[in-house]
């Protein structure tokens, strides 16, 4: 079961991971996009990481909503509204929860990922963050359905996300700036799928 502190730890851990990998993310984005994904995500996530110090949150959902709004305002690129939507939707099913288990988190994760799909209108294979998040969600639900607890289910999700991320390399981008490149986007890992994997991996480390 994860409490507010664990969720705050998820965000700070993720912020650190993103900051550590910011240059890599930017490099990936330079190959097929506009070379700003690393700096955008770093700016957004570090703003989120400071939230816990700036404000006392009374609940998990209030905290996650604030994270979502912060991303919307600070990321700047398309990841802002996408991840912003993810966290805002994630917060919904967790309203009034003080301790979150595998079942509840599964519902929240589904709402969050569906939010991203609705916002970005992406499909599997478009070479986007959804290509990492979708297998992660499936793996999480499968594990949770089989009786795994939150930590184990997230471990499964993180592995699936990484596999999904790696699978984006041979894909042809069909969304965002990368779509202008068409076939030339083949051979590059998608930066969005990469940051999404970092997000899930951070969850696996902290939400226990």
């Amino acid at each position: 079961m994860a409490d507010l502190t664990a969720f705050q730890s998820w965000i700070t851990t993720c912020a650190t991971a993103i900051a550590d990998r910011a240059d890599d993310l930017t490099e990936l984005d330079r190959a097929i996009g506009d070379a700003d994904h690393g700096s955008n995500m770093k700016r957004g996530m570090s703003a989120c990481a400071q939230l816990a110090e700036q404000e006392d949150f009374s609940s998990i959902d209030a905290y996650l909503k604030k994270v979502g709004m912060t991303l919307v305002s600070t990321v700047g690129g398309a990841s802002g509204p996408l991840y912003g939507t993810f966290f805002l939707r994630l917060a919904g099913p967790l309203a009034a929860s003080e301790q979150v288990g595998a079942h509840e988190f599964g519902q929240a994760l589904r709402a969050g990922v569906e939010g991203i799909v609705a916002r970005g209108k992406a499909e599997l294979g478009d070479k986007t963050m959804y290509d990492a998040l979708s297998p992660a969600l499936d793996a999480f639900e499968e594990a949770a359905g089989a009786g795994s607890d939150l930590a184990d289910a997230l471990q499964a999700a993180a592995r699936a996300a990484a596999e999904g991320r790696d699978a984006t390399e041979p894909m042809v981008a069909r969304k965002g700036r990368a779509s202008y490149l068409g076939e030339r986007s083949v051979g590059h890992q998608d930066p969005g799928a990469t940051s999404a994997t970092l997000l899930v991996e951070a969850a696996a480390q902290t939400l226990t």
Binding site: D36, M69, S73, G76, G80
Partner: peptide, 13 residues
């Protein structure tokens, strides 16, 4: 923009 120089869009704004 996020501010005078930083490129980006801000849904709240």
């Amino acid at each position: 923009g996020l501010d005078e120089e930083t490129t980006g869009t801000d849904g709240v704004a």
